[in-house]
Computed example of a mutant assay.
Amino acid sequence: MPHKPPSWWFPSGRDDSFFARALHPLGLLYGELVKLRWRAQTPYCSSLPVICIGNFVAGGAGKTPLAIAVANRLKDWGETPYFLSRGYGGRNSGPHFVQPDQDLAADVGDEPLLLARHAPTVIAHDRKAGALFIEQQSATIIVMDDGFQNPSLAKDLSLIAVDSQQGLGNKKIIPAGPLRAPLAFQREKADAIIVLGDHSQNALRRLADAMTGLPVISGRIVPHGDTEWLSGSKIIAFAGIGRPEKFFTTLRELDAEIASAHAFPDHHVYSDDDATRLLTLAAEMELPLVTTEKDWVRMLGRTGPVGALRDQTRTVAIEITLEQASENQLDQLIKNALRAKKAA
């Protein structure tokens, strides 16, 4: 189910939350269980190279746009990448070939619908089964969107997306904090950190624990496509993503005036009541509705008020940009992983 992270996971100041302290022993236990799961399982080694785009913490960090950027790079080199996703929030356990113009987010999840607009996409709750399915297709490489902590499928390259503002939160393990496993344990299995956002010295110092001993690549999530229509426009904005306020900030940076902002939990399934409230507000204020591509695809195939909301809402697309030095560094990491796979 969609949810909003507890406030103590990402405190604005010093972490002294009673809940974080009280849940810390459970977090330590959860971390040990994660390590036991890894030790108890022998990962499947695919015949295809596997690049995993993951993160150390629960929640959004830019994994999906980063996965798309990597796949686009691979296509430029003549490769045929296939995305492999769990299909979070979808009922279909797979393996299933995502049809972006036919499938619903309720069946395959919202992120796979975005991925499938850039490269063939397979969802599978069982990552090994998904890899085996992809091996029977025309793919030359598998790009995993998430699944870094899943031990069932061996990875040839693991790139970790880190939001520079959100960082590692209180650096405690679920449920006390956002870490999906002990940090040192995760670092051992990572190959590089992709820091997305602010690259000031203060921001990088906050991420020192995550970056220790790993190559660090700097990138930014920026608007993509035509955004001129937003400049000087008064709008109603809504978003159900990991950090809705980040989307609202992006709109303001594009010189849009947000008359009303509505934040929903990540992967939020819009109800008829949600849609009716937003449509009514837009009609009363005589203002356009704006949301993210991820929210928009979640409304595909819906009828009634939600379908009307989709039809009356415009979107702002995003993409990952890298400076030339960071782009060269990422290219080298990927090429080294592909060469090592072929030599194995």
Rank of each mutant, 00 (worst) to 15 (best):
M1G: 13
P2N: 10
P2L: 08
H3G: 14
W9L: 09
P11V: 01
P11L: 02
S12M: 06
S12R: 01
D15W: 11
D16R: 09
A20G: 15
A20C: 12
A20D: 11
G27S: 08
G27T: 14
L28W: 13
G31M: 14
A40I: 03
P43C: 02
Y44I: 04
S46Q: 09
S47Y: 10
L48A: 13
V50F: 08
C52F: 14
N55D: 15
F56I: 15
F56S: 10
V57P: 03
G59H: 11
G60L: 09
G62Q: 03
G62W: 00
K63I: 09
K63Q: 07
T64V: 09
A69Y: 14
A69D: 14
A71M: 02
A71H: 02
N72G: 07
R73E: 13
T80C: 10
F83H: 12
R91C: 04
G94N: 10
G94Y: 08
H96L: 01
F97Y: 11
V98A: 01
P100I: 04
P100F: 03
L104F: 00
A106P: 06
V108L: 05
D110G: 10
D110H: 05
D110E: 08
P112Q: 12
L114D: 02
L115D: 15
A116Y: 00
R117P: 13
T121G: 02
T121E: 08
A129H: 00
A129W: 04
A131D: 08
Q137S: 15
A139Y: 12
T140F: 12
T140M: 09
T140R: 05
I141C: 10
I142H: 11
V143W: 09
N150P: 01
S152G: 00
L153G: 07
S158I: 09
Q166S: 13
L168K: 09
G169T: 11
I173H: 06
P175L: 09
P178L: 03
A181H: 04
P182G: 11
Q186Y: 07
K189A: 05
A190P: 13
D191C: 00
D191R: 00
I193Q: 01
G197N: 01
R205H: 03
G213W: 15
L214I: 00
P215I: 07
I221V: 13
I221F: 08
P223T: 02
H224T: 09
W229N: 10
F238S: 06
A239D: 11
G240S: 00
G240E: 00
I241R: 07
I241V: 14
G242N: 03
G242V: 04
R243L: 03
P244K: 07
K246P: 04
K246L: 04
F247E: 00
I258P: 07
I258G: 01
A259H: 14
A259T: 15
A261V: 01
P265S: 02
H268R: 13
L278A: 05
L279I: 12
T280Y: 15
T280H: 15
A282W: 15
A283T: 09
E284Y: 08
P288N: 06
T291N: 10
D295P: 09
D295I: 04
D295G: 09
W296N: 00
G304W: 04
A308F: 09
T313S: 13
I318N: 04
T321H: 06
L322Q: 08
E323G: 15
A325K: 08
D331N: 13
A343D: 13
